[in-house]
């Protein structure tokens, strides 16, 4: 199963928070927010794909459609 996705998301989360603080220290407040937003969008992309897979599987198993 795609367990590596979990650790990828955790990695991206930690990286974002580090970048955010680093950029804020460097005085680039707007870049920090943009970087956080970008990381959030990437993680959202992975999560939405996984949710799509979950919902199609549930429809298949429970004959919901």
């Amino acid at each position: 199963m795609n367990l590596d996705l979990l650790f990828k998301i955790a990695g991206v989360g930690i990286l974002i928070s580090v970048f955010h603080t680093a950029l804020k220290q460097a005085g680039k407040e707007d870049m920090a927010h943009l970087c956080t937003l970008a990381g959030f969008a990437i993680v959202l992309l992975w999560v939405v794909q996984l949710l799509g897979q979950l919902f199609t599987t549930v429809q298949g198993v429970f004959k919901l459609f």
Binding site: M1, N2, L3, L5, L6, F7, I9, A10, V12, G13, I14, I16, S17, H20, T36, G39, F40, V43, L44, W46, V47, L50, L51, Q53, L54, T57, V58, V61
Partner: peptide, 29 residues
């Protein structure tokens, strides 16, 4: 991992827990 991330980035922590719930259910399905 969620505990680490929740303090800094709560929105990523929620997505992480959502992903874990989805993966566990796909395993059991």
């Amino acid at each position: 991992l969620i505990l680490i991330i929740r303090s800094q980035r709560p929105e990523i922590a929620v997505q992480l827990s959502l992903t874990l719930a989805t993966i566990i259910f796909l395993l059991v399905l």
